[in-house]
Each structure stands twice: as C-alpha cells, then as structure tokens.
C-alpha cells in the first residue's frame, strides 16, 4: 500500500539582521517582487483569512496608518492564503461597508510559498491560515523586526508605527530606544564596551561635558535628540 506523504511544513523563522527571504508574488496590485521595494522600508504583514472579523478591523487599522507610513518612506504589503479574487472582493466589501479604501497591495499566497519562507504558518494554531505576523524590512532588504500575534488578537497599529520610528531613529542617530519610547523621548547612547570607556563615562569630566544627558550609570545614559 502506498501512502501519500504530506508536504513538510517549514517551521523555521527568518532571522533578524539577515536578508529577508526573496519572493515574487501575485498581489491585488499586480505581480511584485521583494526587490521592487528596495530603497523603501517595508512592513509585510499576514492575516489569517479574508472576510473574517478581526482581520477586517486590522485592515481598517492598517489603512489608517498608511499615510503615516508613507511619510516615513515605508510601504505596506499584506498577505493571506486566499486567492486574488477573494482579496479583491473583500477589499471592495470593506470599502462598501465601512468607507475605508485599502490603498496597499495584498499578496494572494495560495501556494503558501511566501508564508512558508517567512514562517507565517503555525500548524499548532491553524493548518490552513497564516498567523498575524509583521515583518519590518529596511531599504537594503534586511529583516529588522518581527512581531507574531495569535489568531484571536488584533494587532496594535500604534506599536507598528512606533517600531518603524524606533528603527529609523536608531539607524539615523546610532542610538537605541528604551522601553515605551515614543518619538521625542530621550534615546540611549551606545554602552561603553571597554573598561577604559566605562570609566570615562562615569567620570565627572564626562558629566560636565555632556549637559542634558540623563545618566543612571556608565551603562545607561540617555540623551535628547536635536529636533
């Protein structure tokens, strides 16, 4: 008796700091490749299925931050394991029922190639739907951040904007951002990585020369960024 083997489900996740998995995919705005977004930041997100309630609220939310993302040179790209015709019908239905136009493309990942490459499928949750994932990819195509939410929990759009802001501020200023950081808050300057630099950071001389710095200790010093 022959048995039909199920296709292996890739459980691996992409890694931060490495090139985001390349793809070419059919979307509601034509066939796009990851490289088409080169030079812009990209927020790639997946949703479990079209015509479902939590996803609908999320799409309205993503449409709500679309302009703010554009101001941050950031494109949005959705994905689910649905056909492009289902996507089109759903996007038209959202606009018809709520008045919200969805301005960004949505990948129709029927063969699950993109979902598999990005580790969006969580068989423990669902064997047919992608989880609620967010990937922030920088202008060089490097994966910089990932967020994974379960099927039951809609994402926080403010946090996605905050994450993009934090990454862009960190890159531009060579700093890090503390917990609950918001644009305009103080940022963390790089921690000294030698005994000598740690001693300098602790010295009265450093404190005198760096008025406006908020230093808890040699390893935790914050400063304001120029407006």
């Amino acid at each position: 008796m022959t048995t039909v083997e199920e296709a292996p489900v890739a459980r691996g996740l992409p890694r931060l700091g490495e090139p985001a998995p390349d793809f070419e995919a059919v979307t509601t705005q034509g066939t796009v490749r990851l490289t088409d977004f080169r030079g812009s930041w990209l927020v790639l997100f997946s949703h479990p299925a079209d015509f479902t309630p939590v996803c609908t609220t999320e799409f309205i939310g993503f449409a709500g931050i679309y302009q703010k993302l554009q101001e941050r040179h950031t494109e949005l790209l959705g994905l689910s394991v649905d056909s492009v015709y289902s996507h089109i019908a759903w996007l038209r239905n959202i606009e018809d029922k709520t008045g919200t136009h969805i301005p960004f493309p949505v990948i129709a990942d029927l063969d699950k190639k993109v979902a598999t490459a990005y580790g969006m499928l969580m068989p423990g949750e669902s064997k047919t739907e992608a989880s609620r994932c967010v990937f922030v990819i920088d202008p060089e195509g490097v994966l910089r951040a990932m967020i994974y939410y379960p099927l039951t929990t809609g994402r926080n759009m403010d946090e996605i904007l905050r994450l993009v802001d934090a990454l862009q501020v960190a890159d531009k200023n060579k700093v890090a951002t503390p917990a609950n950081w918001r644009p305009g808050d103080k940022v963390i300057i790089p921690t000294p990585n030698t005994v000598e630099l740690a001693a300098e950071r602790s010295s009265q001389d450093f404190i005198k020369k760096t008025e406006g710095y908020d230093s808890v200790d040699w390893y935790l010093t914050k400063k304001s960024l120029a407006p």
Partner: peptide, 12 residues
C-alpha cells in the same frame, strides 16, 4: 505611482 508599482509595471 509608488516606486514598487512602477518597477512591477515596467517588467510587464
């Protein structure tokens, strides 16, 4: 048009 759409469209 967004640059990604131009790149995609030019391929076509």
């Amino acid at each position: 048009l967004p640059l990604f759409r131009v790149r995609s469209g030019l391929r076509e």
